[in-house]
Simulated scan of single mutants.
Amino acid sequence: MRYNQALLDELNLLLHFDLDTTQQGIKVHHDADPALIGAAQRLYDKGLITLHDGGYLTDLGREAAEHAQGMLGLLKETTAA
């Protein structure tokens, strides 16, 4: 399986969460990019975020966001080397 655009949109949305705190969520506004709105809905449907338009990370969502942010960090480091 390869990353498709929908999965990339979900990964990019997970990058917006601040992992240093559990008290800060995100809000995807109704006039945002449709791809972002769709990504939020899919993450909600998968049980990774608490609201269809953002909210907070669930425990599973936090784990996914940690992996997404960690992978991005590794790829950036590798690219810079």
Rank of each mutant, 00 (worst) to 15 (best):
A68T: 10
T21L: 01
A68V: 14
R42Y: 05
Q24D: 11
G55I: 02
A65S: 09
Y56T: 06
L15W: 02
A6G: 01
Y56A: 03
R2D: 11
L8M: 03
Q23E: 12
T21G: 10
L51T: 12
L11K: 02
V28W: 04
Q69K: 06
D31L: 02
N12I: 10
D59L: 06
L36M: 13
L14C: 09
L57D: 06
L74H: 12
L19S: 13
M1A: 04
A64M: 12
D53P: 03
T78Y: 15
R62L: 09
A40N: 03
I49A: 06
E66A: 08
D45C: 05
T78N: 08
L13M: 01
A81H: 12
G54I: 10
A64P: 15
M71A: 15
L36E: 14
E66S: 10
D33N: 04
Q5K: 12
L15S: 07
Y56S: 00
G73Y: 11
R42E: 13
L11R: 00
E63H: 05
T58I: 03
D33C: 04
I37M: 01
A81K: 15
E63L: 00
N4M: 11
D33V: 05
L75G: 02
Q69H: 09
Q5A: 06
G25F: 11
A35W: 02
D53A: 12
E77P: 05
H52P: 09
G25S: 05
M71Q: 13
L8Q: 08
E63P: 02
N4W: 13
A40V: 05
D59H: 11
A40W: 01
